[in-house]
């Protein structure tokens, strides 16, 4: 079997054209997963009445259902109920006008939330109870203690696990093909429909996913570095430089304002 480089390149270009959609399928669930996972984990760790129990139940149910099954269920519900619900709320959109990518995002986001909840919960327990107690004894509220002391300490612990989820989610994003959402994999196989160059198409798609996953891995890995060791990382050096430039600009602006005020005062005297 011959491997045609030109077909491969055509697939690569075609797949890359769909990259924004895959990025959307990855980034939106990721953001929702991080936020929702952290909040749900806090519900469970702090034993919030009702919400904590509900979270535990929801997560255990959701973890037992394969993503493809969940995806198809959501799609069927979406197809059959959307028009009625839209009509009920007086929205004139019909199911045909909505991009089905949103069903994919919804399913992937729920998946992310449950996975991240488990990771964050583990990370929560890694922060010694004394850290929270010390914060409370200093007069911080529970929320302040969470935001300023506990979450900053659990992030480095959670990062390796989150990294797995993010990479997993980049690869998982291709399952939305099951309900016909167009993304990188679909894009890369468009030329194959004409040329039957399926191998080239899938290799191209694989290459794109791999590049995306590696880039994500590199970026997230930066948060694994503890604050005291960050001077030696290029990423944090760039961040520090940006921050420094910003403070310098503020200082310059202040100075400029001062000079301006002095000038005005001087003009008044004149």
């Amino acid at each position: 079997m011959a491997f045609h480089l030109d077909y491969f390149l055509a697939s690569l270009v075609s797949g890359l054209a769909y990259l924004p959609r895959t990025l959307l399928l990855v980034s939106l669930p990721l953001a929702l997963g991080l936020l929702g996972g952290l909040v749900l984990a806090a519900f469970r760790v702090y034993r919030v009445p009702v919400l904590g129990r509900l979270t535990a139940l929801g997560v255990s149910i959701y973890q037992g259902v394969p993503i493809v099954v969940a995806l198809v269920i959501y799609n069927l519900l979406f197809m059959s109920l959307f028009n009625d619900v839209a009509a009920f709320f007086g929205v004139a959109t019909t199911v045909a006008e909505v991009d089905i990518i949103w069903v994919g995002i919804f399913a992937l986001a729920l998946q992310e939330v449950t996975l991240m909840e488990e990771s964050f919960r583990g990370a929560f327990y890694s922060v010694p109870a004394g850290q929270r107690e010390a914060a409370l004894a200093c007069g911080l509220t529970e929320l302040q203690a969470l935001r300023r002391i506990i979450v900053p300490q659990l992030v480095p612990v959670a990062v390796p696990m989150l990294m797995n989820h993010v990479v997993g989610n980049i690869k998982n994003s291709s399952v939305v093909i099951a309900i016909g959402v167009a993304e990188v994999l679909t894009g890369a196989s468009i030329p194959a429909a004409r040329t039957y160059s399926f191998l080239e198409s899938y290799v191209a798609a694989g290459l794109i996913y791999w590049a995306l996953a590696t880039a994500a891995e590199q970026l997230i890995g930066q948060w694994e570095i503890r604050p005291e060791a960050r001077q030696s990382s290029w990423f944090w050096q760039v961040c520090a430089r940006v921050r420094r430039r910003r403070t310098v600009t503020v200082a310059q602006q202040e100075k400029r304002g001062q000079v301006h005020a002095e000038l005005e005062a001087y003009q008044k005297i004149l």
């Binding site: 004394g130 850290q131 010390a134 200093c138 007069g139 911080l140 302040q144 300023r148 002391i149 604050p227």
Partner: peptide
């Protein structure tokens, strides 16, 4: 066991209650 905030420097540890709580 001291319970100094592990994510903050000595100075930030002492500042934390003043800034955030007070």
């Amino acid at each position: 066991n001291y319970n100094l905030f592990a994510n903050k420097t000595a100075r930030e540890n002492v500042m934390e209650g003043l800034v955030t709580a007070r």
